[in-house]
């Protein structure tokens, strides 16, 4: 099986700021990391390959500074890495992002499984994986914690839902999103580090991607940020006290009694 892992580089959540003037996320000051559920997707892909054979390619859409992170994926065990990078891809919402990634997957050629993380941490929506599936007319399973081969070239995926766990049989090609924390991502392989440093990360620009320009970047994004505002703070009393534990307990008890009566 040829497995493509979609990997996004995100700013460390606690370091992101918003520029109120441009209405854009200001990533400049923030250091980056590989989105955490994408590491779980990568581990799922590597484990699947190691057990059943095949090849793992990591794919990312983003600016050139993403490249070193793709090398991390190579050092961890991926076979190839591709970065989709062009100014024309910038400003993409989920429709345009998924289109661009799907175009990259098409260009790669024969792909059986596309693994994504469940959600990206920088204002992510978890919508990219099912969107990629539609562009590729592939089957899909989101929020997957376990992936094993099935009969007749199918795969079995176990999805974590609100009311239980569902195992589905999927025809391939399939796009799968992996839940965060579903496995223990492996560490960098020291022997692969040298290979990863010298390996070629392929970079495809708009021309090489051969996509339809109307679906790319800002132009291909139907949604718009109309405004930013401060989250309204609920009108709270904001009474803060420093008291003994016993005093605290009786204050809390009084609040409980009052709250129960007030709204029942």
């Amino acid at each position: 099986m040829h497995i493509v892992v979609c990997m996004k580089v995100v700013p460390r959540p606690e370091e992101v700021k918003v520029d109120l003037a441009t209405k854009m996320l200001d990533r400049a000051g923030a250091r980056s990391v590989i989105n955490s559920s994408d590491m779980n997707a990568l581990e799922t892909a590597l484990a699947f390959r190691d057990a059943h054979g095949g090849k793992v390619t990591v794919l990312s859409m983003g600016p050139p500074p993403f490249e070193p992170y793709l090398r991390v994926a190579l050092a961890v065990g991926a076979d190839e890495a591709i970065l989709l990078s062009d100014r024309a891809f910038g400003g993409a919402d989920t429709l345009a992002t998924s289109y661009t990634l799907a175009a990259g997957i098409r260009k790669i050629g024969k792909v059986d499984l596309v693994l994504c993380g469940e959600e990206s941490s920088d204002g992510g929506t978890s919508q990219v994986p099912p969107s990629i599936a539609e562009w590729l007319n592939a089957s899909q399973a989101t929020y997957v914690e376990r992936l094993v081969p099935g009969k007749h070239g199918t795969v079995h995926a176990t999805r974590v839902l609100e009311d239980g766990k569902e195992t589905v049989e999927l025809s391939v090609p399939a796009v799968i999103s992996v839940v965060v924390g579903s496995n223990e991502p492996r560490f960098l392989d020291y022997d692969r580090w040298a290979f990863a440093q010298s390996a070629k990360v392929q970079v495809w620009n708009e021309k090489e991607l051969c996509g339809d320009p109307q679906y790319l970047g800002l132009k291909g994004s139907p949604t718009a940020v109309a405004g930013l505002r401060e989250v309204k703070k609920a009108g709270r009393r904001r009474e803060t006290v420093t008291v003994t534990p016993d005093e605290a307990a009786s204050r809390i008890k009084a609040e409980i009694d009052r709250a129960k009566i007030a709204r029942s």
Partner: peptide
């Protein structure tokens, strides 16, 4: 989006 900000999307 960090810092107590919310974005209005249309």
């Amino acid at each position: 989006f960090g810092g107590g900000i919310e974005a209005g999307i249309t």
